[in-house]
Amino acid sequence: MTYQKLRKFTEIFGAVCGGLLISVPAISQTAVAQQPTSATPQQSTAKINPCPSIFYEEPHNSRVIVPQGCPPNALTQRLANQGLLPTARTTTSSPYQAGVGGETPQAGATTLNPCPRIFYEEPFNSRNVVPQGCPPNAFSQGQQPQGNISSQGVPVTPQSSTSRTTTTQTPSASQQQAPSTTIALANGKVDVKLINDTGARVTYQVIGDTEARSLEGKSNVMLQGISTPVTVTFQREDGGLLLVTPQASAEQSGMLEVTLNEATDLAQDTKAMRIQQNGSVFLN
């Protein structure tokens, strides 16, 4: 009996020890499985330099306007001195392009100054027509038909009107210029095809005929039956320089093709085109 009790006790003790040995790895694995995984390090967000050095290297130094808040480069400083920069610019992290690679600025990114002071400085004061709604300069007073000045919405006193008209009716020899081209008119009227070869939107206006309109980059528009004499004004909405090239159409009589390109020299910049009753075309 003693032997049987000892044998049974040994079997029970062995079963208990075996169970403990089997459960230890399982408990270890469960503990390991319940350990939280290490958090993935959060990716750092790279900060963009709003004023990269490329804006101050050629050709960008003389062709690209820097973003608002950056030190001005050569082009920005020159346009600011001439009053051609927009009066307000929305601060963005993207570069503010001006005639490089044909980029078109986003709509609503700029607000143009409708009456830059360059229109009231020589030689533009006596050669350029101011946009509608701006105070007339010397050229506007002398070239507009009688009664059209008031359509620009700016009252003019008789004294200043008489004074300005007297000084601009007989321009000096230095203000005379040869026509850029000549076109044969049809009953005193001309068709004008505007071809915008720039990548920027251009604002144009036929003075006394149309309101200011926009012409998208790489597009064209036909203006038909315009009575002469007439003045057409141009302005790139990104503040860049504009080269205007008029040429009589070889396909259609009485049509003037006007190509708008990006200009890199301030001397080439054109703000207005004048078509006389004899078909002579002048650029200013």
Rank of each mutant, 00 (worst) to 15 (best):
G102N: 06
A109C: 12
G69R: 06
A98Y: 08
G239V: 05
L283E: 01
Y3I: 14
C70M: 05
Q205H: 07
N148M: 15
T168V: 15
S249F: 02
T270N: 12
S253W: 01
P67D: 01
G225F: 01
P136E: 11
V202A: 09
V258W: 04
T45R: 10
T37Y: 00
Q169A: 10
I118D: 12
G102C: 07
Q277R: 08
T92C: 04
R89G: 07
N73V: 03
T259M: 01
S38M: 07
D191V: 02
Q146F: 11
K193D: 07
T166I: 14
T91I: 09
I54M: 13
S94R: 11
V192S: 03
G153H: 01
S62N: 04
T165N: 12
F13A: 15
G188E: 04
G99W: 10
T90A: 12
R201Q: 12
P246N: 05
D191Q: 07
G133P: 09
G208A: 07
P229D: 03
P59Y: 02
I118F: 08
N49H: 01
N284T: 11
S94G: 06
V258E: 03
V130E: 01
Q42H: 05
P171R: 07
C115W: 03
V244P: 09
S38E: 09
S140A: 15
D269Q: 05
M273C: 09
G147C: 04
N113R: 03
S227G: 12
Q235H: 09
I48D: 05
